[in-house]
Simulated scan of single mutants.
Amino acid sequence: MASVVETVQKEVGPLIESHNFDLVDIEFVKEGKSWYLRVYIDKPGGITIEDCAEASDEISEKLDSLDPDPFPEAYFLEVSSPGAERPIKTSDDWHRAVGQYIHISLYAPVDGQKVFEGTLDDYSDASLTLTYMAKTRKISKQFDVKQVGFARFAIKF
């Protein structure tokens, strides 16, 4: 049996794509006594409140029409932008991130550190190249993609 997230992704993915939006992530989580279905969408140039409202209406209508109902509990639907520091998860995300300032956390230390922030210079399914500052020196380093535990866009200060 498919999970709620898998079902929602299968059902609303094409709907999101029909608006030329990217389906960034889906969460089905319990917080306190309530369940939340969170759908994160984006598009080049950023998603607007109107985009989220339109997508929310269509997603709600689509999910209400499913039979059998895939949701074990009543839930609140939230459709929003993933934010400026959105996670980088898929291969498409990585390719879009080339040339951008990002944050990566590694599973194990490299050169004594597990966290790096810098500009993603190159990406392939096997490796990525990041240019970052180490004190006053600019360093370009290649990482194996399997070393990366978490990645997100970052804001450079």
Rank of each mutant, 00 (worst) to 15 (best):
M1C: 03
D122R: 10
V39P: 05
D125H: 05
K156C: 09
V12S: 08
A151M: 01
S60A: 06
Y101D: 01
Y40V: 03
S127T: 15
V39D: 06
W35I: 05
F21K: 06
R152I: 00
S60R: 04
Y101I: 01
V5S: 07
A108S: 10
D22T: 08
K10T: 13
A84K: 01
S60L: 08
S81I: 00
P44F: 10
V39Y: 03
S56M: 02
D122K: 11
D92R: 09
V12Y: 04
D51L: 13
A53W: 00
S34A: 15
G112Y: 06
A84D: 01
R38I: 15
E117T: 11
F28A: 12
L130P: 02
F28M: 12
L15F: 06
Y123N: 07
S60V: 00
V5E: 13
A126T: 09
T119V: 15
P109W: 04
I59S: 04
E61Y: 05
D69M: 02
K138C: 06
Q113T: 12
V98Q: 14
G118E: 02
L128G: 00
I16M: 12
K141E: 15
V4R: 06
F116Y: 15
I88E: 00
E54T: 15
I104W: 06
P44Q: 09
H95W: 04
D125Y: 11
D144G: 01
G118T: 00
I16D: 08
S140G: 08
A154P: 06
I139R: 08
G46Y: 06
A74H: 12
P109Y: 08
L77C: 14
E58G: 01
V148N: 13
V115R: 13
V110F: 03
T136M: 08
E58I: 06
F28I: 10
E117Q: 11
S81V: 00
V145D: 00
K146G: 11
D67A: 06
D69G: 03
K30Y: 04
F153C: 10
S105G: 07
S105H: 02
G149F: 09
S18P: 07
I102S: 02
H103P: 04
H95E: 13
E27Y: 11
L66S: 04
I16R: 12
G118W: 00
D121Y: 05
D111I: 06
I49D: 07
S60F: 02
P70V: 05
P109I: 01
G99V: 09
A53Y: 02
S65H: 02
D125P: 06
S34M: 11
D125F: 11
C52V: 01
A151K: 00
D51P: 05
K141F: 10
Q147R: 04
F71G: 04
G45I: 08
G83Q: 07
Y40P: 03
E31K: 15
F153H: 14
N20Y: 12
R86Y: 05
V79I: 02
D93S: 03
S18I: 12
Y36S: 13
